[in-house]
């Protein structure tokens, strides 16, 4: 029943799905199938500890350290595991490198498979039917919607994620970033640039790329 006033006589009733989730949690806890403390740990991890800052750190390192870059492009899993970034669902990570001739863009046409350990929980648009359908069909138009226009000689390759394989885009290092250290480089790497719907930002807050809301 809707409430019209702020002085509720009783606690505000959660929505129907929220009550159903509470019911599931109660039932599974009573049966010993889950531990509420484990749920809190999972929520805390994804809300506070994991996010695009992890991926940005990996990208900045790859820009600064050629051996690291070579290793992560060849076989990302062991390199990432060493940094403490590994998939809790046992998925494999693949890093794909943007070059002047190939721009990479990631989608999950099935649902919303995403490199959680490196980017956290995907944004709403990544999960939308519109992006999932259009990214494969008309990637250049989708990029244009994101404000990214690529030279004609740059091909666009779209990678479709699955339960087993998740992709991370290694954006091109922006011009003018030669003197920056890893921390400063990481600040140029937005979430969207690692999905492939943006480019890495130019140093001095310059032009040509959008901020992906990752900071």
């Amino acid at each position: 029943m809707p409430h019209d006033h702020s002085d509720h006589p009783h606690a505000l009733l959660p929505s129907d799905p929220a009550l159903r989730v509470k019911a599931l949690e109660t039932i599974l806890t009573r049966k010993g199938l889950i531990d509420p403390a484990a749920l809190d740990e999972i929520i805390d991890t994804y809300q506070n500890k994991i996010g695009p800052q992890n991926g940005a750190r990996v990208i900045a390192r790859a820009w600064s350290d050629p051996a690291f870059k070579k290793a992560i492009l060849a076989d990302a899993d062991p390199v990432l595991a060493e940094l403490g970034y590994y998939g809790r669902q046992g998925e494999h990570m693949v890093v794909v490198e943007n070059t002047p001739t190939q721009h990479n863009m990631v989608v999950c046409t099935l649902c919303s498979c995403y490199p959680w350990p490196l980017l956290g929980i995907p944004p709403g648009w990544y999960k939308s039917d519109a992006y999932r359908a259009r990214a494969v069909r008309e990637p250049r138009k989708v990029l244009a919607d994101f404000g990214v226009t690529l030279p004609a000689e740059t091909a666009v390759r779209v990678w479709d994620s699955t339960a087993e394989v998740r992709y991370l885009v290694l954006p091109m290092r922006p011009a003018g970033s030669e003197d920056l250290d890893e921390d400063a480089l990481a600040a140029l790497v937005s979430r969207d640039s690692m999905i492939g719907t943006a480019l890495a930002s130019a140093p001095s807050g310059g032009s040509g790329s959008i901020i992906g809301g990752s900071s």
């Binding site: 959660p14 929505s15 799905p17 929220a18 989730v21 509470k22 599931l24 949690e25 599974l28 199938l33 889950i34 531990d35 484990a38 749920l39 809190d40 999972i42 929520i43 994804y46 809300q47 996010g51 809790r88 669902q89 956290g120 929980i121 944004p123 709403g124 648009w125 939308s128 519109a130 992006y131 259009r134 989708v142 919607d145 994101f146 404000g147 959008i210 901020i211 809301g213 990752s214 900071s215």
Partner: peptide
Amino acid sequence: MSDCIGHSAPEPVFEEPWHAQVFALTVALN
């Protein structure tokens, strides 16, 4: 595909607490 493009405001990781709860339940069961 209009308002989902070109946004710049940071978004919460989970829009509602129950989204986080059902996500965590699923991950825990897995």
